[in-house]
Design a protein around this nucleic acid. Structure first.
Lengths: 341, 341
DNA sequence: CTGAAAGCGCTAACAT
DNA sequence: ATGTTAGCGCTTTCAG
């Protein structure tokens, strides 16, 4: 038995074990340049026998190439972001880039801190949720000189590239569908999250369209934390308690919408004839409810894919560095809870 | 306006701008050693004015300290892991350690690859899901010489430390509760995931206990992919179609359990009198269903916390490096779908 | 309290 | 096809 090393192995160890220069070992391990087959085999054998694992820290410093992509998102408990990550992963897996995640908890202070940390690793690109950042964050992003893709939302001015949907338009679109469905007395439920700019934009789009038709939001209710499903129930009950004549409920996410739906069904409400419902996100979860909730797909997976693709493309030598703007088009899914025109 | 730099800033730039040596700048930026207040202020001002972001790659190489913790989990789409991550985050946030995530998609090949990638960054610790790894992975972990915490499961032989619950015992415990509830004709539903060792262990624990009481699993059904809620419905219908006399359904996760519950309620089944149900995980989502599904908490958040704590403790200079074994004790939550003894 | 020298482990660029 | 040299940007160590 070999005694395990008390320090980690270096190229030099492999070099000595195989009798070739460090440089040749390096070439073999990276599949670079011409190395004779015999040498290659010998080196590989030595490396494996020793259990050598290259030191990327040193490699990155020497080559000033870091195959990391910083992904900065608000939270993981919001079902939306894991799906974005999966899209990113799917694309980066085909490359040598690796995503590294940072969480902001929906606060600008943390975003700034996380961004600083991330940038200090000199990643090959940054994917960051939202278009609203502190001036300092924006300055860091610009000064970094690396590709930046802001995701989820396209309503605003990006630092560099942007991939998302227009939440304002999504709200407008839903507003139109609600009106066409003949609904007139509308309640709104959402999070109190002060920094949920995207929900705010949807809400503004909605109220705009309704307003132009002379319709106002009759009641609203906000929540934070806890089981979204349960909150959906509670808020729905509260809202209808205050105004029993509501004929449509718009939820800022599918989970509270599902809670509301379950409660309404238990109470025997006639959906979507007497009261209509819609959520937002297009969660897979909705398939399997007693009725399928009307919703709009936030294109989460695709957003992740496209953003990663931009970074991957730009990481190629002499790639086109022009900023991209990709606005995806979400479609309304009527499900069983929104009367069709 | 300053022209933005075409290369990234170095300590030298700050050194020149502030008129002190690079060494002193380095000390200021890391709050190390004694630096006069005047110098400190001057350096900080220059650094900020230039927009200097330290290069951790170089710092890590020079100090051979990398404040990264590799977290290797199967997937993000499984609701379980985001919660583990949140626990990890909560603890690491108080330290200067930063989690870096790697996904294995439940395959050993990817696990091995991801582990290799991660180790090549020389992290301060590894948190990895499960106890079942390839020999090569185990060898890498051991040879790395860094703290390793295997999480989720304690039924097996860890490389180093381990934090989790005994899934075998969880299955046994549920088996006993089922028997005490007076149920005798039991159906099982779960994933086909060949590598879901933890679900398998729960299943074994369950069948063991039932077997000793002369009770066998009457029917079983497996699924993969798609909306778990929907699959729960479909499998439940299929199972009861094949054997209408089943009086208990054990689901390997809460989401399919919730689907089954919804379907049974629609069909007018008498729960938990005529038929009992239980899931696994203790998802927050369950609060808000028409009835609360019986389940067992997998202690996800706490597992994350404890694992991170072990790494954080060991990262301290001259810390105790002895392997830890932390077996958390999940409790049954009877909800409204499991008859109490 | 501050600075100068040496080197972390690797790779780019240039030999041979 | 292989080796040599000179750093990458920082921190450690030792000297003032």
């Amino acid at each position: 038995m070999n005694k395990p090393p008390n320090r980690t192995l270096t190229l030099r160890d492999v070099s000595e074990a195989s009798g070739v220069s460090e440089m040749t070992v390096s070439r073999v391990l990276r599949n670079r340049g011409d190395v004779s087959d015999a040498t290659r085999k010998r080196v590989l054998a030595s490396a494996k026998a020793l259990g050598y694992v290259p030191n990327k820290i040193a490699g990155a410093l020497a080559s000033s190439r870091v195959n990391l992509v910083a992904v900065i998102i608000p939270s993981m408990s919001n079902l939306v972001f894991p799906e974005v990550m999966m899209g990113i992963n799917e694309v980066l897996e085909e490359t040598e880039l690796q995503p590294v995640m940072g969480l902001t908890d929906y606060t600008r202070e943390k975003e700034e801190k996380v961004l600083y940390e991330m940038l200090s690793w000199r990643p090959s690109g940054v994917i960051i949720a939202g278009l609203e950042h502190s001036d300092a964050s924006r300055a860091m992003l610009r000064a970094s000189g690396i590709p930046v893709v802001e995701i989820m939302d396209v309503d605003g001015t990006p630092v560099d590239s942007v991939v998302g949907i227009s939440h304002r338009r999504a709200g407008e679109q839903m507003g139109r569908a609600i009106l066409k469905g003949g609904y007139r007395r509308i309640g709104f439920m959402g999070t109190t999250m002060p920094r949920d700019h995207r929900a705010r934009k949807r809400f503004e789009g909605l109220t705009d369209v309704l307003g132009k038709a002379g319709v106002e939001i009759a009641e609203r209710e906000f929540y934070s934390g806890g089981s979204a499903l349960l909150k959906g129930r509670e808020m729905t009950q509260a809202l209808l308690g205050r105004d029993p004549d509501l004929d449509f409920l718009y939820y800022s996410n599918d989970l509270i919408g599902a809670g509301g739906l379950l409660w309404l069904l238990e109470q025997g409400y006639d959906i979507p004839a007497k009261i209509g419902l819609a959520g937002f996100n297009g969660l897979n979860l909705l398939k399997g409810l007693p009725r399928e909730l009307a919703t709009m797909d936030a294109c989460r997976f695709e957003i992740g894919r496209r953003a990663a693709q931009i970074i991957a493309d730009r990481a190629q030598p002499d790639a086109d560095q022009a900023p991209q703007r990709i606005a995806l088009e979400p479609k309304i899914s009527y499900g069983d809870t929104l009367r069709r025109p």
